[in-house]
Structure formats: C-alpha cells, structure tokens
C-alpha cells in the first residue's frame, strides 16, 4: 500500500519548548487513523506539520509523496479545523463556492456537497444564522471539496447531533472504501472506536503507542471485563484480577485476555442467566497510556 503521510524522527520546538520528540509513524492509503492525546500532547502541532503550516525543527514530514507546502499536495488535502466561524455575511453556498475556487474544485461539487451534509435548505441563508452543528457540517463539506486523498478532521463530531454523527461516520466509511486516507483527532473516544483502523497515542510530545486496537490492547495487557448475572455458587479462577458485585446479581470480573475463553467455559458450566463480555475499550487503552506516561491531569497551552 502506498504511504500517504510519513513522519520520520520529527522534532518540533517553539523557542525553548520542545513539543514533539522523535515522532515516527506512517499512514497508508485507505486507512483511517485516530490521533489521540491529552490537551497539549502535540496533536495540533502534528496536524500543523502535516498541513505544512509549520516546518519541522528537524526530521522529515512527507505528505502524498511531497512536501505539504507544495500546492499540488495541498490541492489533495481536505482539512476540517476544530473551530471555524467562516464568513458571517456570506451564505453557505457562497462560502463553499469561495473555497471551491481557491482549491480549484469544480463549482458543480458545491451543491452536491451541501446536499451530502444536509445543508441544501440552508444554502441561501447567511452563515451568521447557522448553529454550531450547521457550521460544522459546512466545514465538513469544505474539507471534501476537490475529492481529497487525505482528509484531516479535528474534532469532527463537536456540535453534531447523534444522527448527524452517525452519518459522518458512515461517510468516513465510504471515503475510506474509495481509498481516502483519514486522520481523526477526537476526544470522543467511544464514538470513533469502531471506525478507526489504527490509533496513534501521544503524551507530552512523545509517541506513546501506535497500532490497531488489538495490538494496543495486547501491548497494554489490559484485562477483559466479564459480567455475569445469576451465578449460584462462588466462582474463582487464578486468572481473575479482581471482581466486584454489581446490582441485580451481576458480578463483574476482570480477567487476563488470554484466559478469557477458558474462564467463559467455566462460567457457562455454572449456568448463568446472562453474560456480557467487554474487551478493553479505546478509552481504557487511552487512560492506560496516559497513566503510563504520567500525563494524567496535565494540560498544555495551544501554541
């Protein structure tokens, strides 16, 4: 698979403050990657490097086979910033037309995109009358102008209602199938969990972990939660880390992932009424790496 974004030993400093240390990872074509980290972990700096807004202090950032500052490369990148108000006095359609002209995208795409994000009815209204969610949709349409090969979404679901959020993730799935590479920065971890192929976890400017969710779970060795209802007798097993009693005769067990099936077989012998198995979620993985990096409760300042 072709490499779309490649960071090689990237260091980034603002004055004396080093915000990225030795960052190395790749994003391949058609991959959806989650970029996670605490506030000030270096996500924004990483995104700015990829977008070519800043130059790395040292190391190499390659995007779509070139430098992100080349206009050929920029034409193929779509970016949804975290917070964009647009131009209050322009209508939604005019805003998109302006950006389409700047990007060299066909103007015919404007109405298609407005329909795709559900803004057709509001297309002739001025952006100052838009709600946060509508501006977010407009921002998304803007990012999709010119059918980008690389899409970078910074907190894409902020302000979106649950249905619009689902639509967004479905859209991400379609774009991925069409070969678009996507980077999502988000703090809404449960939402993105099932849509990302790979995660990059940053803490204090260092790359803490990188890989697909299974690799990260194994690497972290996080326990699997098993909840059982209606066990008649006491249950013990050497691979159970801890257990606690929940309401309505539910028992929650934390077990080693490798022993999961074995323990389940044992439990089934005791004929429980109900059973739930929950592997470590993205949130658990995230918390694990933040604790490991000693980055709990710290927040950096946006540069």
């Amino acid at each position: 698979m072709t490499v779309v974004v490649e960071l090689k030993q990237v260091q980034q400093s603002y004055g004396d403050l080093q915000v990225l240390h030795d960052m190395t990872w790749q994003l391949r074509a058609g991959e959806v990657m989650g970029l996670f980290g605490h506030n000030g972990a270096g996500k924004t700096t990483t995104v700015r490097l990829i977008l070519g807004l800043i130059q790395a202090s040292s190391g190499e950032v390659r995007v779509l086979g070139g430098e992100a500052s080349e206009s050929r490369v920029r034409q193929q990148i779509g970016f949804l910033p975290e917070n964009v108000m647009f131009y209050p006095q322009l209508t939604g359609r005019e805003t998109l037309q302006h950006f389409a002209r700047l990007k060299g995208a066909p103007l015919a795409q404007v109405d298609e995109l407005l329909a795709q994000v559900g803004l057709t009815a509001a297309a002739t209204k001025r952006v100052k009358t838009y709600s946060k969610g509508m501006r977010q949709r407009l921002g998304l349409a803007q990012a999709l102008l010119g059918q980008p090969k690389l899409l970078i979404l910074d907190e894409p679901t902020v302000g979106l209602d649950p249905i619009a959020t689902q639509e967004l993730y479905r859209l991400i799935g379609r774009l991925k199938d069409a070969g678009t590479s996507i980077i999502i920065c988000s703090h809404v971890l449960p939402g993105v969990e099932s849509y990302i192929d790979r995660a990059v976890v940053l803490a204090r400017g260092y790359l803490e972990a990188e890989g697909n969710l299974n690799q990260l779970r194994n690497q972290a060795g996080l326990p699997v939660q098993i909840r059982v209802q209606g066990l008649t007798s006491e249950f013990t097993h050497p691979e159970i880390h801890s257990q606690r009693q929940l309401t309505a005769q539910w028992l929650e067990l934390s077990v080693t992932p490798a022993a999961k099936l074995d323990i389940l077989r044992e439990i089934l012998k005791l004929q429980p009424q109900d059973l739930e198995v929950r592997p470590a979620s993205l949130e658990d993985i995230y918390c694990y790496y933040m604790e490991k990096a000693g980055a709990v409760g710290i927040a950096g300042v946006q540069q």
Binding site: L53, S71, R74, I77, F79, V84, M85, F86, Y87, K103
Partner: peptide
Amino acid sequence: EEGGTLMLLLTYPL
C-alpha cells in the same frame, strides 16, 4: 484568524 479561516486558508493552495 479570529474567525478560524486564516489557518484554513493557509492549508489551501494559496
């Protein structure tokens, strides 16, 4: 910049 469009414009081929 206050409207958030400066950063966006600078990611464009501009």
